[in-house]
């Protein structure tokens, strides 16, 4: 066992253990404040009360994509530098990302029912999210199917790389296939297209809240994975002696 394999998780456990209470507190505070503030915003003149769904839908959608990007970076770090914590963090992030994608899809469908008149439209953005969800499911399934932990980390890392390319490719292929109903980016930087400040600030806050929530869950889940790995190592050592 090299020094990296042993020292890094220990250091991670110490740092993350110290960070965890603060992260959890900040996540709870921002999530609750952002969503409650969003809930108390006045009705939109066009969408009525359904505008309140925005404060769940947009942060979840943002995290769904960003968590995949984080998994890609973590997988690359594992494949290149062989930091075990990195591979475990990618593994720990995947279910969170899948749930975020599911929330974005569910809130989108519920919002679309009165607005577009149907629960599901094969709109490019919705379709891309469905595809992203499929990639998350495949990734998680591969992690649970491979027994040897290092092989599992390698294979899922390669899958994450290939999957990223194809998720992006699908995004543009789907645009070619069907032009959609979905409105453009909610937080456009072009002046004149921005949503008014009463919606924007609570949205920023709930986005921050969702990010902190992901961070807290990621820390806990990675700690779980490290503990499981250590447990397996201890059992293996006992079997040898």
């Amino acid at each position: 066992m090299s020094i990296w394999e042993y020292a890094n998780p220990v250091k991670f456990m110490r740092v993350s253990g110290a960070m965890l209470p603060w992260t959890v507190a900040a996540a709870v505070l921002c999530c609750v404040a952002g969503v409650v503030w969003g809930f108390l915003t006045p009705l939109d003149y066009k969408q009525g009360a359904t505008v309140k769904i925005l404060f769940l839908h947009v942060p979840a959608a943002m995290m769904a994509i960003n968590i995949w990007v984080m998994m890609l970076v973590a997988s690359l770090i594992w494949l290149i530098r062989r930091h075990h914590v990195s591979a475990l963090a990618a593994k720990a992030a995947a279910p969170v990302g899948a749930v975020m994608t599911l929330i974005a899809l569910a809130t989108g469908a519920i919002w679309g029912q009165p607005m577009w008149g149907s629960w599901w439209e094969w709109d490019p953005r919705l379709t891309s999210f469905l595809i992203l969800f499929l990639f998350y499911v495949g990734y998680i399934a591969l992690w649970s199917a491979v027994e040897d932990p290092d092989s599992a980390a390698d294979l899922t890392g390669v899958l994450c790389l290939v999957g990223s390319v194809f998720a992006l490719l699908s995004r543009y292929a789907v645009l070619f296939w069907n032009q959609g109903l979905h409105q453009g980016a909610s937080l456009s930087v072009a002046p004149g297209e921005r949503m008014s400040a009463i919606y924007r600030y609570p949205l920023y806050l709930s986005m921050l809240g969702f990010f902190l929530l992901f961070l807290a869950l990621l820390l806990i889940r990675t700690r779980t994975e490290i503990r499981k790995r250590r447990l397996a190592a201890l059992i293996a050592r006992e079997m040898r002696t």
């Binding site: 009360a49 359904t50 809130t107 519920i110 919002w111 029912q113 009165p114």
Partner: peptide, 26 residues
């Protein structure tokens, strides 16, 4: 909430269930 009350509550409810499930599992 006007006429969309059910829609809004449903969206918040589904999200809450999913998030609580995730946190509980974690």
């Amino acid at each position: 909430l006007g006429k969309y009350a059910v829609t809004v509550w449903m969206a918040y409810g589904v999200s809450a269930i999913l998030l609580v499930g995730l946190i509980w599992h974690t």
